[in-house]
């Protein structure tokens, strides 16, 4: 993450010397960001097996409360962070985008696991969305299948770093004309309409997967199914008992 460091111009050495004497120097921004990053409230929802790891992270052994993110909220209005934990099916995607739209600013998103990043093992399926970042911006991509609780904590720490380095005046939700709500996709005859939102996400021009693995191939010998004459009489009345 190429983040510009948001540091005060007071010398660090002087600061620590002063701290020993009981004088604390800080900037308003630092204080504000410290408060924000130490009380990230995630939205309470899980989609698949990654949710189990998220639950484990919230429990006593890994204890997400050490990072101030233990308050899983049941309402998007009270949440700061959306952890997309699990496979996003096409049927679920509109609801996720709607929940994101309903969250109050400032809002952040962690995609947890291979499925919510890019479809994961279901990438060739008809039913799974190939990454939630097609419809809404994502702050931290957290790979793994599923990521261990430590990985989720690491992702949270990355997010805390990002929050720490934000300047309040320059954050995107205070800028004029920036979009922070995104259209909710609809169900179409072949899948979701639209397939992605080009303002947020665009497909790679060269397919990395194809260049590396080539086109999909079905291996093995095809065995014909045995022939049978029991198709029944097409003129017979069916459904009689």
């Amino acid at each position: 993450m190429g983040l510009a460091k948001n540091r005060s111009e007071v010398d660090e050495g002087l600061k620590s010397e002063l701290r020993k004497k009981g004088v604390v120097i800080t900037t308003l921004e630092e204080l504000y960001n410290w408060g924000r990053r130490s009380s990230i409230w995630p939205l309470q929802f899980g989609l698949a097996c990654c949710a189990i790891e998220m639950i484990a992270t919230a429990c006593a052994r890994y204890d997400i409360a050490r990072f101030g993110a233990e308050l899983f909220r049941a309402s998007p209005r009270q949440a700061d962070l959306m952890i997309v934990a699990g496979t996003v099916t096409k049927k679920m995607a509109p609801q996720i985008v709607r929940l994101y739209n309903q969250m109050a600013e400032p809002k952040y998103v962690i995609t947890m696991g291979a499925c919510s990043i890019a479809g994961g093992p279901f990438i060739d399926g008809y039913n799974v969305l190939k990454g939630i970042d097609r419809y809404m911006p994502v702050d931290v991509h957290l790979p793994g299948c599923p990521p261990r609780p430590e990985a989720l904590l690491w992702g949270l720490m990355q997010l805390q770093q990002k929050i720490d380095n934000q300047e309040i005046e320059k954050t995107e939700w205070y800028q004029k004309g920036t979009k922070r709500e995104f259209p909710v996709p609809e169900f179409g005859p072949k899948g979701l309409i639209p397939k992605f939102n080009p303002e947020i996400w665009r497909p790679e021009t060269a397919s990395h997967r194809r260049s590396r693995y080539g086109d999909p191939v079905l291996l093995g010998k095809k065995v014909a199914a045995p022939k049978f004459e029991t198709f029944g009489d097409p003129t017979a009345k069916v459904g009689t008992v």
Partner: peptide
């Protein structure tokens, strides 16, 4: 299944 990386006219 559909090719999810290509926008069709109805998407546009």
């Amino acid at each position: 299944p559909e090719d999810a990386d290509v926008l069709e006219w109805e998407d546009v």
